[in-house]
Design a binder for these strands. Structure first.
Length: 274
DNA sequence: CAGGCCCTGCTT
DNA sequence: AAGCAGGGCCTG
C-alpha cells in the first residue's frame, strides 16, 4: 500500500521509538516473508542487537542495528510496522512477525503477505537487486529537475511507466504518480519523447508537491495504511484524481476517467491532461 | 511492454 | 462468483 510519504511517516514514528531499544526475541509466524535467510537464522541472529536509527530509501526501510548488519524491510501492499509499548495487549490482526524488545515490541503485520524482510550489510551493496538499483529518492536533493529531464528526454516509454520505475525515481507508486501527472497537466499515456522540457519541469515540481503534501498529511489511507503508531493518514482527502473516477475534475469540472494502463488502475482528467 | 504471479479481503 | 486493490519481479 505504502508509497514514499507513507513509508516516511512510518520511518519517523519508528525513529522516535526504536533507537536504544534492544531485541530480546523474534517470533516469525510466516517464514516466507524472510527473503535472504531462513526464518530460523533470522530469528536467532537478531536477539542481543540494539536499534540505532531508522533510514529510508524509496519505499524501503532500514532498521539500523549496533552491528555490521541491518534489517531491511519492504512493506509492499499491506505491510505494517508498529511499535507498541504495551506488550500485554492482544497482538493486532494479521500479525506475521513479532520482535520482542527490552521495552515494548515491534510488530510486523501484513494482510496480503507480500512484504519482504532481509538482513543485509549496513554499508555497501546489499545484494538485494531492487534496493541496490534504486534511483534517487523522490524527496532527496539528488532528485533534481535536470535529472528528471535527462530521464524523460532519453526514453521512449510512457510517462507513467517511467514514474513508477524505481530505478529511475525511488518512492512514487500508483497514487502519487497519477496525482503528479494531474498537477503537471500530462496524460499518463503520453510518450516520454513527447514531453517538453517545460512540462518536465512542471512534472518535477508536481512530484515534489504531491510527496510533500502526502507527508504533511501523515500519508494516504485508501484501504488500510496506518503509520508506525497505528494511526490512519489524512491525505486521501487531498487526492485530486486518484479514486475519483466519475467525479468532476477539481479544476475544470470534466469527468475524471479511469483506465487500465500497464496493468495499473490509472486516473486522469481528459481535459486538463493532454 | 503486457501479463501473470505472489496473497487476502472487500466491493460489485 | 468475479474483479479489484497503493508493489515488484519474472516471463514471454
Amino acid at each position: 500500500m505504502p508509497e514514499l510519504p507513507e513509508v516516511e511517516t512510518v520511518r519517523r514514528y519508528l525513529a522516535a521509538s526504536l533507537p536504544g531499544k534492544s531485541i530480546t526475541a523474534v517470533d516469525v509466524q510466516l517464514p516466507r516473508l524472510i527473503r535472504n535467510r531462513t526464518a530460523e537464522d533470522f530469528a536467532a541472529s537478531l536477539p542481543g542487537c540494539t536499534f540505532t536509527a531508522v533510514a529510508r530509501r524509496g519505499k524501503y526501510l532500514s532498521l539500523m542495528l549496533n552491528s555490521p548488519w541491518c534489517l531491511l524491510v519492504h512493506l509492499r501492499m499491506t505491510g505494517r510496522l508498529i511499535y507498541e509499548s504495551d506488550t500485554t495487549a492482544p497482538l493486532p490482526p494479521y500479525t506475521r512477525i513479532v520482535f520482542t524488545l527490552n521495552e515494548g515490541r515491534l510488530v510486523y503485520g501484513d494482510v496480503r503477505t507480500f512484504g519482504c524482510l532481509w538482513i543485509v550489510p549496513a554499508a555497501g551493496p546489499t545484494g538485494i537487486s531492487g534496493y541496490d538499483s534504486l534511483g534517487p529518492d523522490g524527496l532527496s536533493e539528488d532528485f533534481t529537475a535536470d535529472y528528471l529531464w535527462q530521464q524523460v528526454h532519453g526514453s521512449r516509454r510512457l510517462i507513467k511507466a517511467l514514474l513508477l520505475d524505481q530505478t529511475c525515481l525511488a518512492g512514487l507508486g500508483n497514487i502519487y504518480a497519477d496525482e503528479a501527472l494531474f498537477l503537471a497537466g500530462i496524460r499518463p499515456s503520453r510518450r516520454c519523447s513527447r514531453v517538453t522540457r517545460k512540462e518536465s519541469q512542471r512534472l518535477y515540481e508536481a512530484i515534489r508537491t504531491v510527496l510533500t503534501e502526502g507527508l504533511e498529511n501523515g500519508g494516504t489511507t485508501v484501504f488500510n495504511f496506518i503509520d508506525g503508531s497505528g494511526k490512519e493518514g489524512k491525505n486521501q482527502e487531498n487526492l485530486r484524481v486518484y479514486g475519483r473516477e466519475g467525479q468532476p475534475c477539481p479544476v475544470c469540472g470534466a469527468t475524471i476517467v479511469y483506465k487500465k494502463q500497464g496493468g495499473r488502475g490509472t486516473h486522469y482528467c481528459p481535459v486538463c491532461q493532454k
